[in-house]
């Protein structure tokens, strides 16, 4: 018994996280006793907490009821906290598309109602990185994300729409209308909305019937926007190939 009385940790919340971590570290079949020894916590406290975690299905019991394993409820936490790995195969797929293309190509991940630049074009890096992430209503990738947000995430995006350039959509109903169009067309565009003189086309990257998890963006000067749009079909083919390589 490695338990020292009076050392049952700082708080219930952090203790439960430490218990989860211990089970993850010690592996399937870790017993309450092993957790109690590893964390120097009172056995009764550990029993109470593991049962609470089992109740919420963060932990599950093995068939003999003695041991614990990580339950499906932490899948949500882990999936949200860890970005998908952009494999070499995925990067070379993007690279192949770039070589057949005169316009900069970026891959932007859409996760938990936020954007993350996963693969920036090495030759023409994104100029407005901060703005892309901060003002989703002003960029093609951002609008693609907004268009596919589920209902539960929508309330978080209330508030006034900032005017990044003169062309940024600041009227919510106009934006809502455009989001519907984006869902129908399966692609999002942005012309002078994030940066004067620059425009972008974003295509969704998703598994068949899966949620949109990334945007493949083709950007370029606004006067060349029609030329960018001509590349849409090729980009869509790449996006379809990319999805199974990433997710």
């Amino acid at each position: 018994m490695g338990y020292r009385p009076g050392n049952s940790g700082p708080s219930t919340a952090s203790n439960s996280l430490r218990i989860l971590e211990t089970v993850a570290r010690l592996g399937t079949g870790t017993t309450a006793k092993e957790i109690s020894d590893a964390l120097q916590m009172a056995p009764a406290t550990v029993y109470r907490m593991v049962n609470a975690l089992v109740g919420d299905e963060y932990l599950v019991r093995t068939a003999d009821l003695r041991g614990f394993a990580l339950g499906h409820a932490i899948s949500g936490l882990i999936a949200a906290a860890t970005p998908p790995n952009i494999s070499t195969a995925a990067r070379s797929e993007i690279e192949k598309f770039r070589t057949g293309n005169r316009f900069p190509v970026h891959l932007i991940l859409i996760q938990n109602a936020s954007l993350k630049i996963a693969d920036d074009d090495p030759d023409y890096p994104l100029q407005m990185k901060f703005e892309v992430m901060r003002y989703p209503h002003a960029s093609a990738a951002g609008k693609l994300m907004l268009a596919h947000l589920d209902e539960s995430a929508r309330p978080f995006l209330k508030g006034p729409l900032a005017e990044v350039t003169r062309h940024t959509i600041t009227n919510r109903s106009v934006l809502e209308k455009q989001l519907v169009e984006i869902r129908v067309a399966g692609q999002a565009t942005e012309i002078n909305e994030l940066e004067e003189g620059s425009s972008c086309l974003a295509l969704p990257v998703n598994l068949p019937n899966g949620p949109v998890q990334a945007a493949l963006c083709l950007s370029g000067p606004s006067e060349r926007f029609s030329a960018i749009c001509e590349r849409a079909e090729a980009a869509r083919v790449t996006a379809t190939r990319l999805a199974p390589l990433i997710f």
Partner: peptide
């Protein structure tokens, strides 16, 4: 079965 390294603990 997912059998644990610890004894006969398993998940089927």
């Amino acid at each position: 079965f997912l059998v644990s390294a610890r004894g006969d603990r398993f998940i089927s």
